[in-house]
Design a protein around this nucleic acid. Structure first.
Lengths: 157, 157
DNA sequence: GGTATCAGGTGAAACGGTATCATGCGAGTA
DNA sequence: TACTCGCATGATACCGTTTCACCTGATACC
């Protein structure tokens, strides 16, 4: 906390010692990754939020909107709008759930899987570029740490 | 990309193999960290974005809005609004820069430093809680990896 | 049946980014 | 010096997205 003027730093990194450092750093890290990966889906007229839903649909099959909220961490209003978009573009459909008249299961369409596959043409290359400046194994280490940071064992949230 | 139905997972994690996994994971990691740390500044009537600017001001002293854009990674329109808020609340002031009539240097006020200190009462504890389920040294390792992920050496963006 | 809870849906407000504009600086030129 | 042109800084307007609060209808529990 030097008073008065202070020479500007060489880098633009925020102070690592602050208790807010991790939060601010994650913001920039996400921004960097998101803007890079968005390039893979933008030509398809989709945003990453649409793709996050498609991934779940491919991975799990028909999924209620409630479960999509849980799986993606996106607010239910956001899921609503994303599913609206997917439905308008014919990439997914809302179907009634047999046992529960409240619930609507979202299911990916054939056209949806085609778009899903199309996005995976460029995506792996872009993803590799993101971490190409790290040393071997560090990308996996980062994923592992991030996963365990984001999903604590059960108690503390 | 297994075809057809597939058993639902126990956890709510997204597939780790997808090229989009890192981006989506960073989104949730940031969300978790940001909502936790926001609790430390919410009582002061501020958001994390305001605090990101205050940190730079404390660390560097008077800073032009252009440099705040670089330091925080926030768009210049966003910096405008944040500085507007800080000025309205008396936490910072815009001052003319001697050599350049275009530039406005933002400087933290006494009241700004008081608010800055007030936020640091709860912040360290909250920050520790965020990583308390990780093993010793892993938090530092995560910060290190995130830093090097976010700020590539110079060439590749 | 009565009540609490849950899934889905809707509208308003807050947030963040893009495009655009106005002014000032600086390099180059005559 | 005076003039132009390109670029930088800040400010503003607009638009898409996200978040919050509330509402409707269905289910579960007593």
């Amino acid at each position: 906390m030097s008073s008065g003027t202070r020479k500007s730093r060489a880098t633009d990194r925020l102070d690592d010692g602050s208790p807010f450092a991790l939060s601010l750093l994650l913001r920039r890290a996400h921004s960097r990754a998101a803007s890079a990966m968005a390039a893979a889906v933008r030509p398809l007229g989709l945003g990453l939020r649409h793709f996050a839903v498609l991934i779940v649909l491919v991975d799990r099959g028909p999924t209620t909107q409630r479960d999509l909220v849980q799986a993606t961490g996106v607010d239910k209003a956001g899921i609503m709008r994303v599913v609206d978009d997917l439905e308008e573009n014919g990439l997914a459909v809302r179907r009634a759930v047999p046992g529960d008249r409240r619930a609507r299961a979202v299911e990916i369409t054939v056209r949806g899987t085609e778009v899903f596959d199309a996005a995976h043409v460029d995506a792996p290359g872009l993803a590799d570029d993101l971490v190409s400046h790290l040393r071997p194994g560090e990308a996996e280490r980062l994923m592992d740490l991030l996963t365990r940071f984001t999903y604590p064992p059960a108690d503390e949230g």
